[in-house]
């Protein structure tokens, strides 16, 4: 630049500044995207069927549908904050769906639900042991465990058992009270509050961020990194089990593919929410918005008659685009 020219904000510089603001406050942008997407869906729906989409009922439905995804993405958020990824969340949820509906008839609802949660926690614990203690790459470990559980479930689903989705699970997964409030919010909201507050205001939350940011520094600060990872993966399994229970309540029956379509979206919701793929920064607030955005997007695609294949292509493309954007903004520092 020659000496005489005054400093003008070039479009590129403005874009960078905007990127900086958005990368520091992703919630603003995400809320905007969520609302905009809702409006677009409304317009498309009016054009197609003459009906409005921007109604209290549709808003309520969006939250109802978003809950299982947001719970799968809750565990995923914790794991990705540590710099890992959990590819077993969907099969863990499926396991919980089978366990809760398969044991309720013989042993009662309470037993069934606890057992489902224990299975989720247990699968997460195995992931955690592999990743934290035996230092298996998280991708490999959770993919392997996912395959093992899916195989075991296939065998289990061929045995004779009386499947019964308890009424309370059914209500939680598919009904509303006060006309517009989905029951699954009663499960999701407290967990969400716990995670958001826990990440900020608990020692464990601090350690999750710390381990994702720099495990070597954690070790030198006296943190037993394996303890943090172990608990994170176990919690991820437990949250996935909760998601599975809601799903089986919504579908009123367990099947092997009940949670599979949510695997990629669970990662996408976290990435959309602004959590770093490399770990160390982000949070659950963004993930919630990510899950809501994906749910509306799903509605929009359904209205447009898009196939499942097209949806998968889109989710994949979103993750790649955001990963690319993230790499760009962080290398600009």
């Amino acid at each position: 630049m020659s000496a005489g020219t005054p400093q003008v904000a070039t479009p590129a510089a403005r874009l960078r500044a905007a990127q900086r603001v958005l990368s520091d406050n992703p919630a603003i942008a995400l809320t905007f995207v969520f609302v905009a997407l809702f409006v677009v869906t409304d317009i498309v729906n009016r054009a197609q069927s003459g009906k409005a989409f921007l109604t209290p009922t549709q808003v309520s439905t969006t939250f109802l549908y978003a809950a299982p995804l947001a719970l799968l993405a809750a565990g995923q958020t914790l794991v990705m904050l540590t710099g890992g990824v959990d590819l077993s969340v969907a099969t863990t949820a499926t396991t919980a769906a089978f366990v809760s509906s398969g044991t309720a008839h013989d042993h009662g609802t309470g037993y069934a639900l606890l057992l489902a949660l224990a299975f989720g926690f247990g699968i997460g614990l195995v992931n955690g042991i592999g990743v934290a203690i035996f230092r298996v790459n998280p991708l490999i470990m959770t993919l392997g465990i996912s395959s093992v559980t899916l195989g075991a479930l296939t065998i289990y689903s061929q045995t004779r058992f009386v499947a019964l989705v308890p009424n309370i699970v059914n209500t939680l997964g598919s009904s509303r009270f006060f006309k517009y409030v989905p029951y699954d919010l009663l499960v999701w909201a407290p967990i969400a509050a716990l995670i958001i507050l826990g990440l900020r205001f608990s020692g464990f939350g601090r350690m999750i961020f710390a381990v994702g940011d720099n495990p070597v520094a954690c070790r030198l600060a006296g943190v037993r990194v394996w303890q943090v990872l172990l608990l994170v993966y176990a919690l991820c399994g437990a949250f996935s089990a909760v998601a599975g229970i809601l799903l089986v309540g919504f579908n009123d029956a367990a099947d092997l593919g009940i949670a599979a379509p949510f695997l990629l979206p669970s990662v996408a919701a976290v990435v959309i929410g602004g959590t770093s793929i490399l770990g160390g920064s982000g949070g659950y607030g963004g993930t919630i918005l990510g899950a809501l955005i994906l749910t509306v997007l799903d509605s929009l695609l359904t209205i447009l008659n898009a196939s499942q294949a097209l949806k998968q292509i889109l989710y994949g493309a979103i993750i790649l685009a955001l990963a690319w954007l993230y790499a760009r903004t962080s290398s600009g520092d």
Binding site: G203, F204, R206, M207, F209, A210, D213, N214, V216, A217, C218, L220, A221, G222, V223, R224, S276, G280, S281
Partner: peptide, 21 residues
């Protein structure tokens, strides 16, 4: 680089060893 959490705040960095157990 061996001691810091580069993406975290000054406060979290300074407080980190307090939560190591």
């Amino acid at each position: 680089l061996l001691a810091l959490l580069p993406q975290r705040s000054v406060r979290e960095n300074i407080a980190a060893p307090r939560y190591n157990r």
